[in-house]
Deep mutational scan, measured.
Amino acid sequence: GATAVSEWTEYKTADGKTYYYNNRTDESTWEKPQELK
């Protein structure tokens, strides 16, 4: 099967917290998305 390329990108805020942003859905989350686990 084809490997899905994750749409999630990991970013850090100014105070060093990590969050994740999805370019396709324009969604952001503090929790690590399922695709990255």
Rank of each mutant, 00 (worst) to 15 (best):
W30A: 08
N22A: 01
T9D: 06
T29Q: 12
Y20D: 02
L36G: 05
T13H: 05
A14E: 11
V5K: 10
K37N: 15
S28Y: 15
E31N: 07
A2L: 13
T3A: 13
K37R: 10
K12S: 08
Y21M: 04
E10F: 02
Q34Y: 10
K12R: 11
D15R: 00
E10L: 05
S6Y: 10
T13N: 09
D15H: 04
T13E: 03
P33C: 01
E35R: 01
E35A: 12
T3C: 06
T13V: 03
T25H: 02
T29F: 07
Y11I: 14
K37W: 14
K12N: 06
D15I: 00
E35K: 03
E7P: 08
K37P: 11
K37I: 15
Y19S: 02
N23M: 09
P33Y: 01
T25Y: 03
L36T: 05
Y21Q: 05
D15W: 04
Y20R: 00
T18E: 06
Y11D: 03
T25I: 03
G1P: 13
Y21E: 04
K12V: 15
E7Q: 08
A2Q: 12
K37D: 15
T29I: 07
S6D: 12
L36V: 06
T29N: 04
K32R: 10
E10H: 02
E10P: 05
T25E: 03
N23R: 08
K12D: 03
T18W: 05
A2Y: 11
E31W: 06
N22M: 00
Y19W: 12
V5A: 14
W8P: 01
L36C: 05
E7Y: 09
E27M: 07
E31Y: 07
L36H: 08
G1Q: 13
L36I: 10
T3K: 02
E10Q: 07
E35S: 11
E35I: 05
K37T: 15
Y11E: 08
E31L: 07
W30E: 09
N23E: 14
K17W: 05
T3S: 13
E31F: 08
P33A: 02
G1Y: 13
K12M: 11
L36A: 04
A14V: 10
T13D: 13
T9N: 08
Y20K: 00
T9Q: 12
K32D: 05
A2G: 14
Y11W: 07
T29V: 12
Q34K: 09
S28Q: 12
Y20H: 02
L36S: 05
A4S: 13
A4N: 12
S28M: 15
G1A: 13
V5F: 13
Q34T: 14
G1F: 14
A4F: 10
E10W: 05
R24Q: 14
T3V: 12
W8A: 01
W30D: 10
E35F: 07
Y21F: 06
E27P: 01
K17Y: 06
V5S: 14
W30T: 11
T25V: 02
S28P: 02
E35N: 09
P33E: 03
A2K: 05
L36D: 08
T3Q: 14
S6I: 08
S6E: 11
V5E: 14
E7L: 07
T18F: 08
W30R: 05
K37Y: 15
D15G: 07
E31H: 07
D15N: 08
E10I: 09
K17N: 08
T25P: 01
K12E: 08
S6L: 09
G1H: 13
A4Y: 09
A14L: 10
T3M: 12
N23V: 10
K32E: 10
L36M: 11
G1E: 13
E31S: 06
E10D: 02
N22L: 00
T13M: 05
K37H: 14
T29M: 07
Q34G: 11
S28T: 15
K17V: 09
N22H: 02
K12F: 09
N23A: 11
E27K: 07
Y11N: 05
Y21N: 03
K37S: 15
T29H: 06
E27W: 03
T13G: 10
K37F: 15
Y20C: 01
D15S: 07
T9H: 10
Y20F: 06
S6K: 08
W30I: 07
R24H: 12
Y21K: 11
K37A: 15
W8I: 02
S6G: 11
E27Y: 04
T13F: 04
Y19N: 03
W8N: 00
G16N: 04
T25F: 03
Y21V: 11
N22D: 04
A2N: 12
K12T: 14
Y20T: 00
T3R: 00
G16V: 00
N22K: 01
Q34R: 06
R24A: 14
A2E: 13
S28V: 15
V5Q: 13
K32W: 04
T25M: 02
K37V: 15
N23T: 12
E35H: 07
S6V: 09
T29R: 10
S6H: 09
W30V: 08
G16S: 01
E10S: 05
V5D: 12
N22S: 03
S28L: 15
A4P: 14
E35M: 05
E7H: 08
P33N: 02
W30P: 07
E35L: 06
N23Y: 11
G16W: 00
A4K: 05
D15T: 06
P33G: 02
T29W: 05
K17G: 05
T29S: 12
S6N: 11
T9F: 10
W8Q: 01
K32F: 06
Y20W: 15
A4G: 13
T25S: 05
T3F: 09
T13R: 03
K37L: 15
T29P: 01
R24W: 15
T18I: 12
G16F: 01
N22P: 02
E27L: 06
R24M: 14
Y19P: 02
A4L: 14
K17R: 14
Q34H: 12
T18K: 06
K32Q: 08
E7A: 07
S6Q: 11
A14D: 10
W8V: 01
E35Y: 06
T3N: 14
A4W: 12
A14W: 10
A14K: 11
W8L: 01
K17T: 09
T3W: 11
A4V: 13
Y21R: 07
Y19F: 10
K17F: 07
D15Y: 04
E35T: 07
W30L: 09
E27A: 05
K37M: 15
Y19I: 09
A2P: 13
W30N: 08
G16K: 01
N22W: 00
Y19M: 08
Y20A: 00
K12Q: 12
W8K: 01
Y21T: 05
R24T: 12
E10V: 09
Y21L: 04
E31T: 10
G1T: 14
T25D: 03
T29L: 06
T18G: 03
G16Q: 01
N22E: 02
A2W: 13
K32M: 12
K32S: 04
E7T: 06
T18V: 12
Q34D: 15
D15F: 04
A2F: 13
D15L: 04
K32Y: 05
D15Q: 06
K32N: 07
V5H: 13
G1N: 13
T25K: 04
E35Q: 07
K12H: 11
V5W: 12
E10K: 03
K32V: 09
N23G: 07
K17P: 01
P33D: 03
N22R: 00
E27Q: 09
E7W: 07
